[in-house]
Design a protein around this nucleic acid. Sequence first.
DNA 1: GGAGATGGTCACATGGACGTAACCGAGGCA
DNA 2: TGCCTCGGTTACGTCCATGTGACCATCTCC
Lengths: 128, 128
Amino acid sequence: MDVTEADLPAHDSSDCKAVNAVLGRVGDKWSVLIISRLGDRTLRFNELKREVGGISQRMLTLTLRGLERDGLVTRTVFATVPPRVEYELTALGHSLREPVDALARWALEHQPEIAAANRLYDQRSQRS
Amino acid sequence: MDVTEADLPAHDSSDCKAVNAVLGRVGDKWSVLIISRLGDRTLRFNELKREVGGISQRMLTLTLRGLERDGLVTRTVFATVPPRVEYELTALGHSLREPVDALARWALEHQPEIAAANRLYDQRSQRS
DNA sequence: GGAGATGGTCACATGGACGTAACCGAGGCA
DNA sequence: TGCCTCGGTTACGTCCATGTGACCATCTCC
């Protein structure tokens, strides 16, 4: 049987676009970190900022807006003073953690091989 | 028990770097497409260029170099004339397909939800 | 009265990602 | 002689993502 077509997950252009959109999100360092932090509990804007560490206010806002737009997090404003805004993973956001964690596990598992390949490659290119 | 630490896949900074390196690769549109194309058979440079479609020669070279450096593909030069160069997934490269395909499957599966969330978000922000 | 926290927005700068096009060297072919 | 293919490399330009720092309004606390 011909599996060459069947086991490519994204083959037509519309599928490809959807996959690339998700891949773009996942390729984004901040999105992944935020989803990871939001995994166990809801966090407020500045809590998130402190927890993630190193993210600028602007990027946090932008990233959260993107995640919200994709239906991965919910934003809840409490009209207290000072204002309080809580971010929480949606069910969709939680379900994304599974494949992302799988990828992270792969990265950790194969990190030594990648590092070794890097060293080998750099050694060779230096020799030339 | 306290699982808040245990089930975060990347927590210390070195792990985080490794994960981000892989996430960067995966977030790269071309890398994923190339790995996908190389999944079933080895391809030559221009075959790959034609198969992927829309990639510039420069980006193909750069992306392949990156993948080679990470030990995901092998580059084999045949000293024929005209020269022939074949690219092939390594075992490591093949193993990466599994989590990446999982992510792609997630994307396809949840594409309608994401699209719906997008529409809803855009509607709301337009109303404001 | 002034500073700080909260959750942003806006203007600006900059670096890196990416595309475009030219060039290359060896050989086949007309 | 000159053009084509293959598999690049290099120079150059452009655009977008991201960081920086200022500003805002409101309330509390010192």
